[in-house]
Amino acid sequence: MDDLKRALRLALYGATFLLVGCATVRPEDRAILADPVMQYHLDARAHAALDHVHENREGSFGGGSVKGGGCGCN
């Protein structure tokens, strides 16, 4: 029963999260969002180069950009 309640609570949180996502920022309010500093892919090549350094010194991978190839030892 507790598991069911927990699952329902999680589903409720998830649905709330998704519904809040339907709230929109109107086009006339997007001036700051349009600034390059608010873009996630800003300086993407520089980020990728630094990610490459980290990936070669750490044991984890992923959660950034999709990549293939490279050294299979990491």
Partner: peptide
């Protein structure tokens, strides 16, 4: 997702 005129989030699953 853009939430407000100054707040966005990004979720990445891989």
């Amino acid at each position: 997702q853009s939430w407000t005129p100054i707040l966005t989030t990004q979720l990445i699953a891989s």
